[in-house]
Nucleic acid binder design. Structure first.
Lengths: 198, 198
DNA sequence: CAGGCTACCAAACAAGTGTTTGCTATGGCA
DNA sequence: TGCCATAGCAAACACTTGTTTGGTAGCCTG
């Protein structure tokens, strides 16, 4: 999408500069999301923006670096979403975590191609040596949730680590079955939290 | 594992017959689990059992067919595990579903290479036209859990479909973080069920 | 107008992919 | 002894992959 080449653009600031790099990123995100990392070739990505395969290497020095850029962009969207959600929340910890979950689900389920790639569904299509690097990016994001869970008034015998993985499982698993229409991300967030709240 | 060629076997029933086919299946399962479907080549699999790439096509007529055979084997292990678990359970529905969850986790987390491939983590490394076929196999399995959830005495306003996906999320997500030692599959099953039970 | 930088083209590279084909050693059966 | 299915070898097929290399328009600055 938005991949038409603009050959005859006269404004130098548009036909040159950083925007072709971003076009490559957009195309890469879309194709990674659709067909996985190694289901997508350099030729596919370059072709989508009207470029030859070799030219991509002017902007990114390897396919791995391109993946990392796309992945970072995806994680950033999640972070921005929960930052925004938590900014407008009162002090109630249950309300706060529900808002964070709703924001997380909104990005996960309908946040565009960048966000979809962050899902572990894609992990197995990544080069093995890239996986630790990418996971580190995601772990940083998950720490926001650990803080929210720490503030929750849970039963003393409830393991907060297990609470976190149970919640994250419910949230992230929804990507495997969710279809637009029946539930909104907000519906799911409140339902999941209600099930875990006693 | 168990991939040594037995050239000098005299017993015909061992050096011939179906056992080379099973050796290929074992090798394929191990390598798919380790490096993903398209991270594994026909040459890798054949080489692991001391065969040349072309020879594999005597046993399987395509790489896709090999994948399907491995996947079916994986699903069968899950089914066998919960069948066994439910056979020795009393009538209490909460106890029954906890037993099923424990069995599911035991296979998911420590059930060998066949079972690991059933996880959606691998979906993106499969050929797109195979995905519906494979999902159909898994859906059949999940129906066992729907029955168990239907028998649960839940609040009337609890959506049982959402209950199922929340539970499955918690269970299957554990594959992304679980490491042997700290928790047993049984620990996790009882913790997850306790969180969802009011 | 000269020189250099940006952004890209054109073409090839070496390696790896799934698969097909023709042939052959082996053992069981008539 | 002759025959035939089994199980695999050896070698190639056509194709795709990520990446490199040398060249070159077009613009900006001096």
């Amino acid at each position: 999408m938005a991949a038409t080449a603009r050959k005859l653009e006269t404004r130098a600031s548009e036909s040159r500069g950083e925007n072709r790099r971003e076009a490559l990123l957009d195309a890469a995100a879309a194709m990674f999301a659709a067909k996985g990392y190694d289901g997508t070739s350099i030729r596919d990505i370059a072709g989508a923006v009207g470029m030859l395969p070799g030219s991509l290497y002017y902007h990114f020095k390897s396919k791995d670096e391109l993946l990392l850029a796309v992945y970072r962009n995806g994680v950033a969207r999640f972070e921005a979403a929960i930052d925004a959600a938590l900014g407008s929340t009162a002090g109630d910890p249950w309300q706060a975590i529900e808002a964070a979950c709703a924001a997380h689900l909104a990005i996960l389920l309908d946040g565009g191609d960048y966000a979809r790639i962050v899902s572990p569904e894609f992990v197995r299509s990544f080069p093995p040596d890239m996986v630790p690097v990418l996971n580190a990016e995601r772990d940083r994001y998950e720490r926001h949730f650990e803080k929210l869970i720490a503030a929750l008034p849970l039963d003393p015998e409830t393991d907060r680590w297990l609470f976190k993985v149970a919640l994250f499982g419910s949230l992230n698993w929804s990507q495997t079955w969710y279809r637009k229409g029946r539930y909104t991300p907000g519906d799911l967030a409140s339902a999941f939290i209600a099930m875990l709240r006693k």
